[in-house]
């Protein structure tokens, strides 16, 4: 069997970057999440054209995209941490890590594409 590290985790240096990026995205998400919830409250019951107009506002588009990038990056790092804490079988850990990375990436792309389509198409 090939040599492997004791913990089966990735190489040195990654942990610091992981730790820092999780905090960096958290700091970004504090104002963005508050803005998002406040906007949704203000938009309660809004009809379709109003929602489209809201997303296509350039400021809203930029803030939405910033929130989505931070959110899905933060989500991937947070879920990764849980997998590393609780899943000890090396193969399962790798399979889960890859699956959740792909999942977060797909959702990020879907939401970003949707926002851009609305912003550019209207």
């Amino acid at each position: 069997m090939a040599m492997q590290t004791k913990s089966g985790q990735s190489g040195a240096g990654d942990a610091t970057k992981h730790w820092w990026t999780l905090r960096l995205t958290a700091v970004a998400l504090v104002p963005l999440a508050v803005w998002f919830v406040a906007s949704l409250v203000a938009l309660a019951g809004a009809d379709y054209p109003t929602m489209i107009a809201w997303v296509s506002n350039p400021f809203v588009t930029v803030l939405l995209l910033s929130m989505l990038v931070s959110l899905f990056y933060h989500l991937r790092l947070g879920l990764q941490e849980i997998v590393e804490d609780y899943v000890h079988a090396r193969r399962a850990k790798i399979v889960l890590s890859v699956a959740l990375t792909f999942g977060c990436f797909l959702l990020a792309m879907a939401t970003i594409a949707a926002v851009l389509k609305i912003a550019i198409g209207s």
Partner: peptide, 26 residues
């Protein structure tokens, strides 16, 4: 954190429906 992660599926549906058109959004 995990619950909100699942919630992003709902968020994705919301934005995709909005991009798809009025009937999907309805």
């Amino acid at each position: 954190g995990v619950a909100l992660g699942l919630g992003t599926i709902f968020l994705t549906w919301w934005l995709m429906a909005l991009a798809a058109g009025p009937s999907a959004y309805e």
